[in-house]
Write a protein that binds this DNA or RNA. Structure first.
Length: 463
RNA sequence: UCCGGAGUAGCUCAGUCGGUAGAGCAGGCGGCUGUUAACCGCCGGGUCGGGGGUUCGAGUCCCUUCUCCGGAGCCA
């Protein structure tokens, strides 16, 4: 009867001595001496490796000497207090077995590699310190998202991935079709006949679950979505991917202030969770990726977020005397440089910018009484700029019909959406948070392609 | 998509004025040590991103193209 496997995270927490411990993992390094071989094993259960010491009493010591980096290995041994510096405990091996040998051409040798290179081996990069830490943190924060909303009585809604709304106001969309793209069905006029396609109309991958989410909020009151989102925009930046995960809560009876309050609590909850549950991984990020990270996150958790109307933000940017590449004036979209200056220099902490000019925001945002702004909010945070975008939604049927027309959209496509305003409409609000953007903020990783398992970007859909 | 930068050994990079390709690490072999980015010695390893041009001669200069990275835009 075999003893069960102990995860390395658990083994490292035990008090020595512990006989007969069995661990399994992948070899990070193999240091060979004349009489002794040191194996360091990692199974992903925590950041740290466990060091196994293999002595001459092992019959297969000669084989162990040649274990290659990356190999899958099983070790049974006694957990003892380590006589050497560098680790509290170590495993004195009594049995060492090679489960899966790594060819010497293993791409992740004991050598610093660039993130750029590691993207080309995305199927293996999770075995590195950095990516192990990133994806443990990602998992923890995904759970924290659900916990935050569940604790507040929100319902999790699975909004559709395939949509027919040809303009949800957020960038280019991917087509979804069963047509042979080389020979799509055509009508008599030679144009593509979408009636013959699977859905009998053009369809796309969703760019947002919001409109569907709103219908559920106007029934379940408090809901959120958390799912994949797609943008076919030809964006080549460290902040954009074609497939990403977005969190979109939607709340009936909320106004813009309530919306911002929830967003602030939400962000703080996620950062607090990361600080308390991912401390070992965050310590690594703080040490090797982004010095000052932990202090910055703690600062945000402990500070009240500023709230500032767009008009005031423009005035204060103008009064700052700072020279920007793009001019600042009422009616202008705040550029990345403006957003960062505002949150980093003028305010020095996260700031909600509220009540934007209606011309630069989406049709569904609620018109303010001043006639020229809408109840929109952006949360700007130091170092990365916009983290959250949200708004109170236009609940008045006549106003909404007007803004759809002004936006040049087809009211017919939105008839179901307009129905919610026709039948028991109610004030409501919501926001969207890009999960990967949040992860960048929490980990200090500077490229979004390094916080999602298999990034999809223009010209890149490997793996 | 626009602007800028970069593609040289498995990885990270150097390569001068145009003269025929190097280092560190990794790998293989050997040595040595309770080691921990281990250390020491030896060895193997290259279509210099692709195509074209100039030249006696191109990694190097010119044109073109592809890809990647950064900035901007779009946005989350």
């Amino acid at each position: 009867m075999q003893t069960p496997r102990t995860k390395i995270a658990d083994a490292l927490r035990l008090d020595p001595p512990q006989a007969g411990l069995r661990v399994k993992g992948w070899l990070r390094t193999n240091r060979v001496s004349k009489q002794v071989v040191f194996l360091e094993l990692n199974d992903g259960s925590c950041f740290a490796n466990i060091q196994a010491v293999c002595g001459e009493e092992l019959a297969n010591l000669e084989e162990i000497r040649h274990f290659t980096t990356g190999s899958a290995v099983e070790i049974v041994g006694e957990l003892i207090a380590s006589p050497a510096k560098g680790q509290r405990v170590e495993l004195r091996a009594t049995e060492v077995k090679l489960i899966g040998r790594a060819d010497p051409s293993y791409p992740l040798q004991k050598k610093r590699a660039s993130f750029e290179y590691l993207r080309s081996v995305a199927h293996l990069r999770v075995r590195t310190n950095t990516f192990g830490a990133v994806f443990r943190t990602r998992s923890t924060l995904a759970q924290a998202v659900h916990r935050f909303f569940q604790e507040r009585g929100f319902y999790y809604v699975h909004t559709p991935i395939i949509t027919a709304a040809d303009c949800e106001g957020a960038g280019e969309m991917f087509n979804v079709t069963t047509f042979d793209v080389g020979a799509p069905a055509r009508g008599d006029n030679g144009k593509i006949d979408w009636h013959q396609d699977f859905f009998s109309r053009p369809t796309y991958l969703t760019v947002s679950g919001q409109l569907n989410g709103e219908t559920f909020a106007l029934g379940l009151s408090d809901i959120y979505t958390f799912g994949p989102t797609f943008r076919a925009e030809n964006s080549n930046t460290p902040r954009h991917v074609a497939e990403f995960w977005m969190i979109e809560p939607e709340m009936a009876w909320y106004d813009l202030d309530d919306d911002a309050t929830l967003a602030e609590e939400f962000v703080k909850h996620l950062l607090r969770t990361a600080l308390s549950e991912c401390s070992e991984d965050l310590a690594f990020f703080n040490d090797r990726i982004d010095p000052g990270l932990v202090a910055r996150l703690e600062h945000v958790v402990n500070s009240g977020f500023e709230r500032m109307r767009y008009a005031e933000a423009v005035e204060r940017l103008q009064a700052s005397g700072q020279s920007f590449e793009f001019p600042v004036f009422f009616g202008a979209n705040l550029q990345a440089e403006h957003e960062r200056y505002l949150t980093e220099t003028i305010v020095g902490r996260p700031v909600f910018v509220l009540d934007y000019p209606k011309e630069i925001k989406a049709f569904y945002m609620r018109r303010n009484d001043d006639g020229r702004t809408v109840a929109a909010m952006d949360l700007l945070v130091p170092k990365i700029g916009e983290l959250i975008g949200g708004s109170q939604r236009e609940e008045r049927l006549d106003v909404l019909e007007e803004t759809i027309k002004e936006a040049g959209l087809d009211a017919e496509t939105y008839s179901w959406y307009l129905d919610t305003r026709r039948f028991g409409t109610a004030p409501h609000a919501g926001f969207g948070l890009g999960f990967e953007r949040l992860l960048m903020y929490v980990t200090g990783m500077e490229n979004i392609r390094d916080v999602i398992p298999f990034p999809r970007t223009p010209r890149n859909c490997d793996f």
